[in-house]
């Protein structure tokens, strides 16, 4: 092994970092806490700015989430608002059939998105990665990632203009006496519809992270496997996929942690056209049954519950990943 290249982009790290410390060496023996602290003190110093920001701008105001257990009124203040126990949680703890419907819809949509939406950026990234022409690849990438910047209001409006009951498609069908197809406003097609919209909006954007991972694949591995006579598919399976597996697993686990959150704005914009039975999800249910009235306590309570559920899901998913030999989000 030669020396690593010392050139390259300069870091933007602030000058507050420490100068090079003595090398900790590669010694194996177990160390005491104090020894480990001494060894890693510069590493900790590097973590300091980020950790400070997290503590100040995240954990400190997080204390405000006690309003989940209070009848919080902004004009009274957090500390003086009266305690109400778990009353704010009743919106999701009341066995309301509409809540159960919303939860079911949420889980179904989440499942569909993990099963059908999540893989698409990966496939797209692999497809782009396999293109011979670098210029074509860049051009296509630059086009496909644009819809990410459109707001949901515009995306929904465009879908309606194209596929709505009075949209371009149906106007065409009607004027040619071909009948019409109710794609929007059809409760049975709601989940496929919002799935298509998510794919349209974010699939290209989602490729970016996988393209970055793919850029690290050692081309010699390809060459070696090609020399071995590996087919393109075998190459994909044995060389390309393993190189992005870590990122895929990480994103999948984090996605699971978000399983109770599905496109609030996207859904609320289209709720009227299919009705609440088909479109109510956890966030819209909570919104209409508490938060909409400016009930800060309910919003905080639901946030806590969703956070706990997300935490448990990530914990379990991470355990599962460890069983499969992946490192997951954090190590054992």
């Amino acid at each position: 092994m030669g020396a690593p290249p010392m050139t390259g982009t300069r870091t933007t790290a602030p000058a507050s970092g420490p100068q090079a410390g003595p090398p900790p060496g590669a010694a194996r023996p177990r160390r005491t806490r104090a020894q480990r602290f001494r060894r890693d003190r510069f590493l900790l110093l590097l973590a300091l700015p980020g950790i400070a920001v997290v503590l100040l701008f995240h954990y400190l105001p997080l204390a405000g989430n006690v309003i989940a257990f209070k009848d919080y009124q902004p004009y009274i203040g957090i500390s003086d608002s009266p305690w109400v126990g778990f009353a704010n949680f009743s919106v999701i703890w009341n066995g309301d059939p509409e809540f159960l419907n919303a939860l079911t819809n949420t889980l179904v949509i989440s499942f569909v998105q993990v099963a059908f939406v999540f893989p698409i950026p990966i496939a797209l990234a692999l497809l782009l990665n396999s293109l011979l022409s670098e210029r074509l690849k860049r051009l296509v990438q630059s086009v496909l990632y644009l819809p990410h910047f459109m707001s949901w209001v515009v995306v929904v409006a465009i879908f309606q203009q194209m596929l709505g009951n009075a949209g371009l498609l149906n106007t065409f069908l009607r004027t040619h006496e071909l009948g019409d197809v109710s794609l929007l406003g059809n409760p049975d097609l709601f989940i496929p519809l919002i799935t298509a919209q998510v794919i349209w909006k974010d699939a290209g954007w989602g490729t970016i992270i996988f393209l970055a991972a793919l850029s690290r694949v050692d081309t010699e591995l390809y060459e070696a496997s090609a020399v071995d006579g590996a087919s393109r598919w075998r190459q994909l399976w044995h060389v390309t996929l393993p190189s992005i597996r870590g990122v895929v697993v990480l994103l999948l686990i984090l996605k699971l942690g978000d399983a109770l959150t599905v496109g609030f704005e996207q859904i609320i914009l289209q709720r009227d056209s299919v009705g609440a039975d088909a479109s109510e999800v956890l966030d819209t249910y909570v919104y209409y049954n508490g938060v909409i009235g400016g009930d800060w306590g309910v919003a905080a309570a639901v946030g806590l519950v969703k956070g706990l559920v997300g935490l448990v899901l990530v914990y379990l998913a991470n355990k599962f990943a460890h069983l499969l030999g992946e490192s997951g989000v954090y190590q054992k």
Partner: peptide
């Protein structure tokens, strides 16, 4: 009613203005 009326997502003023 306009076929997308129940969506409450159509630009009613424009549609009124253009006679739809």
């Amino acid at each position: 009613f306009h076929p997308d009326a129940a969506s409450e997502n159509i630009n009613l003023r424009d549609l009124f203005g253009n006679g739809t």
